[in-house]
C-alpha cells in the first residue's frame, strides 16, 4: 500500500475516531441509547414486544425536571423519574398483560400519550410552551474521579462525566449479573425463550413479565433523566427523538446481550459525534447530521438481518419470507 494513502487514512482516523474529544462525545451521546437499549433488552429477553420506550423516556425526562425543580435537588429528579417509570411500566404491564390489550397498540398509545401528556404538563405546570428551562432546575453534577482523572489518556476519557453516564455502565454490568447469575434472571430468560418450560416448573410467568416491563420503565426513565438533567437542564418537547426505537435497534444489534447493547450504543454515539464534528467543520449541514442516528439504525438492522439470514435457512411462513 502507498504510504501517502496510509498517512491519509491515519489522519482521518485520528481526527475522527482516535480522538479524545470525539471519544468523550461518544461516551456521552451513547448514554441515553445504552439505557434505552437496556429498556428494550429486559423486555425482549422476557419475550415481550415493547415499543413503548419512547413514551416512557419522555415521562422520565419530564418528571426528572419536575422533581428537580420542585425539590431543588437532582436526586429528587432522579427519584421522580424512576417513580414515573415504575408507574408507566406498571400501567403498560397491567393493560397488555392482564387486560389483554394488543401489545403493539398499547405501545403506540403510550408513545402518543407520553408526548401529548408531557407537552400538556409543561404548559399546565410550568406555563411554558415548547421547552422549559429554568435556572432553578438542578442538573446532575459532573464527577471527577480523584486519581483516575490525572492519568494521561484514560483520565479525561473516563473521568468528568455526569453520574448518569457512570450509572448506565453500572446498570449494564448489573443487568449481566442479574440475567446470568441470579435465579430470577434465569427464570426471566426461560420465560422469554420457552414460557411453557418455565410454567411447568412452577415459575410464575405473569409475575416475571410484569417485573420485566416495570424494569424497562425504569431504564427508559433514566434515559430521560440523562436527556433532561444530564447535559443541559431543560425539558424540550419530543426530546426523546426516537431513542426509544434506536434502543430497540441497539438491542437487536447487540443480540440481546448487555455487553452487546453497550458496544452497539458506543458505535451509535461515535457515529453521532463524528456527525456533529462534521457539521462543526461545515462539511455537513446540520440536518443531515440529525439524520445520522436514524440512518445508522436502518443500516445496522440491515446488516444484522442479512447476516442472520445467511445463517438460517429460509422458512416460508404465512407467505412472507422472514
Amino acid at each position: 500500500m502507498d504510504s501517502a494513502l496510509l498517512a491519509q487514512i491515519w489522519d482521518v482516523l485520528s481526527r475522527y475516531v482516535f480522538n479524545v474529544a470525539n471519544l468523550q462525545g461518544m461516551l456521552r451521546l451513547s448514554t441515553p441509547v445504552v439505557l434505552a437499549g437496556l429498556c428494550a433488552l429486559i423486555t425482549d429477553r422476557a419475550g415481550i414486544l415493547n415499543i413503548a420506550g419512547e413514551g416512557m423516556i419522555l415521562f422520565g425526562a419530564w418528571f426528572a425536571v419536575a422533581g428537580s425543580f420542585f425539590f431543588h435537588s437532582s436526586l429528587a429528579g432522579v427519584m421522580a423519574a424512576i417513580l414515573s417509570g415504575l408507574v408507566v411500566g406498571g400501567l403498560f404491564a397491567l393493560f397488555s398483560l392482564k387486560f389483554r390489550a394488543h401489545i403493539i397498540i398499547m405501545g403506540i398509545a403510550i408513545n402518543i400519550f407520553g408526548n401529548a401528556a408531557t407537552i400538556f404538563l409543561t404548559r399546565a405546570v410550568f406555563k411554558q410552551a415548547g421547552a422549559f428551562a429554568d435556572p432553578r432546575i438542578v442538573g446532575l453534577g459532573t464527577i471527577n474521579i480523584p486519581i483516575l482523572k490525572d492519568i494521561p489518556v484514560l483520565g479525561p476519557l473516563l473521568s468528568g462525566y455526569t453520574a448518569i453516564v457512570y450509572l448506565s455502565w453500572i446498570l449494564v454490568a448489573l443487568t449481566f449479573v442479574f440475567l446470568y447469575r441470579t435465579p430470577w434472571g434465569f427464570h426471566l430468560r426461560a420465560v422469554g425463550e420457552h414460557p411453557e418450560a418455565a410454567a411447568t416448573l412452577g415459575i410464575n410467568v405473569q409475575a416475571i413479565r410484569f417485573g420485566a416491563v416495570m424494569a424497562s420503565g425504569v431504564f427508559a426513565a433514566l434515559a430521560g433523566v440523562y436527556l433532561s438533567l444530564g447535559h443541559l437542564q431543560m425539558f424540550t418537547e419530543q426530546m426523546a427523538a426516537g431513542r426509544g426505537f434506536i434502543g430497540m435497534a441497539v438491542n437487536t444489534f447487540g443480540a440481546g446481550e448487555p455487553l452487546g447493547v453497550l458496544l452497539s450504543s458506543f458505535l451509535f454515539g461515535l457515529v453521532d459525534t463524528i456527525g456533529w464534528r462534521l457539521q462543526g467543520e461545515r462539511i455537513m449541514p446540520v440536518y443531515f447530521v440529525s439524520m445520522v442516528p436514524y440512518i445508522t439504525t436502518l443500516v445496522a438492522l440491515t446488516i444484522y438481518t442479512v447476516r442472520q439470514q445467511r445463517r438460517r435457512k429460509a422458512i416460508v411462513d404465512n407467505g412472507v419470507s422472514r
Partner: peptide
C-alpha cells in the same frame, strides 16, 4: 415498526 419510525425522523 422500527423501520417506519426511522423513516419518519
Amino acid at each position: 415498526i422500527i423501520t417506519t419510525i426511522m423513516t419518519n425522523y
